[in-house]
Write a protein that binds this DNA or RNA. Structure first.
Lengths: 225, 225, 225, 225
DNA sequence: TATGAATGAGGATTCATTCAT
DNA sequence: TATGAATGAATCCTCATTCAT
């Protein structure tokens, strides 16, 4: 009969406390990393909790301990990606708007190239139909396009502009997928030039939708008038 | 389907074969319709075969009889959508290119408005990560953007142009989703004006990617030079 | 609307009658042949009616038309094998018993070599646990071993002898499987010599089980005393 | 089973691991026992996983947890039988070869009588056509007949002998089935006498197949010269 | 006689989640 | 905190059988 002394009377004051928390954090991170790895390749429903836990070298029960459910882990992993994206989109304040916007696009494309699988997950159906998942990513995207508008002196809340900024995001995403699939890492600069055309067109399109919207200054700032 | 060689030459050449075949075709169609209905709302993995069969008022075994598998039915349903899209994109030959391209966009948006749920399925994760599913839809999309290029006298096989046409498709899709979500059925004409700006930008972007590409004539035909 | 004249008023007297019956018989035979082919490779439960019908180039509904059920077809196919076995075991009446018994064994092994797959089906689990299937094959086997006993002047109904004849059958079957698996078509004659040893041992064993049984004459007839 | 590398070194070296593992082992054993019970009566395809699980009073999911598949459980159950057989065939080292061989046969038949249903499963089609299942049982059988050969001073790897040992196994199996079916538990000793005749005949048969093989000593040791 | 559409019971398998240890 | 045994709902798919034509 195994001796189980009902509460092992933890005498060694605190030493295990800190390590425990650290250990716990490490486990959380491992799970999120493993989840990203798994979900980057397959959709939510086709990934089993077991696989993620195995990849993280952790008991699968911990997924529920830390994240409540499989979906909880998934959304947390997406939030992690959104956070990374926000970092990438944080262009150092300096230079003229046009320069900064180009910098944003360049950093963005660079991130996508470094995380090709995650990119394809986001833009090729990986999000599935889960509205909450889309919201997390849409927010990141919207923040970036709104930032562009602000840089150009426009109100990102403007209805017509919102529509066109979203179209712009679609254009950038699809261009990204094509670029990744036909991997020509070279030519990134001219690709950015091409995307800047799309940015300009989004502004012009907004003006078409709402003729009262003045995008002249913005186009000029962009060097596209 | 197993090939039945040297069938015993059924001598009494009877037509009653027709009603049976007709009935079978009707069943097939009902299943496809029910599948579209179901998949338009939820993703592949969250729809159960028996739901589709129930909705079609048919034994679920028939899904396998006619389509081999749940996925077989799904892909067939997508092919059906692709066929519908092709019909919609078949603009009557007449008028100037600019007029016809506007017509295409108008018909396209009209279709999406009439089939809002299918549209959201296609553009908001419904396709999941199934490459074959994407291919079916991508083909339809590509055919449409290639048609635009041809209308404008450009070679749709050109590398740079291909990339930008794809970006254009992304822009149109995302604009569609936004338009459907914020349902302002009015203003379709100005939305098309805005999208024409994106078309023009796609051409200009292609020229940025490949300076040897001359898009001057195309822009002029589009009335955007 | 297809014209279906409710009973086509068959005026052409009889000509179709014979062909019909002939056609029906041909269909039956094709189904049995296809069934044997299929069941020779796999067990009852793993063969689908569809496969058999497809192989026979016939609508699968006919299986039920002619044989009532899948199992009906299976048993009929087995009866067909039993009939073939009976033919093979019908040694021309002539010569001494020992010669005829050797002839039986030779014909038996020859049949098994020609129908290797059927043999393996019968002796390696193909019959499954269906008692009726076993009975059909056991009968054929028993008939053969009883014939040997009669040839040797013994009563095949004798209890002890029955047991040993069955053991003999087991020995022959297993030897057959080994022989087929290690295909040395040569040496058939000495293999039969070896099996004759088993026949003799079966007789001697029967005498051990029932000391009142006199097998002396039989052994002498066999040339094994 | 996925390998879990670098497990986080579980520091509190607790023994409560044992009770859990013991419980798990008990569950495994219950499933195997229930499986043997079920498969002894019916063939692989006609037994449903949930029947076994129900009989073991356990969730059916555990079959897959522990054995991967229904077939995995089946093969494991067979391996269990093979192990039991090996135990039964382990005759205490003592006495003369003839005595020990008789002891083997007696123990063998005794086991079969005690596990009549399993015996009938093994020898009457229960194994189906699964080659892996046959291999497991064939190995046990072969080990036993090879042991007999070794006891008699013969090389069990000899080609001709191998064939005849297999025939011998077939004879014993079929005799077993007959004996069980016509249940005369009495007379076991004379049945063994009868089977010894078959053993001797197998040796003589081997010599017929390969005249260079000297079985004189073996027959003498068997008391059958 | 022949066809194959239609049915639906039945079964193996997966997997998120719970929970005792 | 960590483990993994246990549960059982859910699902896809197979397939014998029926039957209208």
């Amino acid at each position: 009969m195994p001796t189980k002394p009902t509460k092992p009377t933890k005498p060694p004051a605190r030493p295990p406390v800190l390590p425990r928390k650290a250990q716990a954090d490490a486990t959380r991170r491992r799970l999120i990393a493993a989840a990203l790895e798994a979900f980057a390749t397959r959709s939510f429903d086709t990934v089993a909790v077991h696989e993620i836990a195995d990849a993280a070298a952790v008991a699968h029960g911990l997924v529920f301990h830390y994240f409540g459910s499989k979906r909880g882990l998934y959304l947390e992993a997406l939030r992690d990606v959104a956070r990374q994206l926000a970092d990438v989109h944080a262009v150092p304040a300096a230079d003229a708007p046009a320069v900064r916007i180009r910098a944003l696009l360049k950093r963005h494309m660079g991130f996508m190239r470094r995380h090709r699988k995650i990119a394809l997950h986001l833009f090729r159906g990986g999000l599935g139909t889960d509205p909450e998942a889309w919201q997390i990513i849409d927010e990141a995207r919207q923040r970036a396009t709104a930032w562009i508008a602000v840089e150009l002196g426009l109100d990102p809340g403007h209805r017509a502009l919102r529509l066109m900024l979203r179209a712009l995001a679609g254009a950038i995403d699809e261009a990204t997928v094509h670029w990744l699939a036909h991997s020509r890492s070279a030519g990134l600069d001219s690709l950015i030039d091409a995307l800047i055309e799309m940015v300009a067109a989004a502004l012009r399109g907004a003006a078409r939708l709402d003729p009262t919207l003045d995008v002249g200054g913005a186009l000029r700032a962009l060097g596209m008038d």
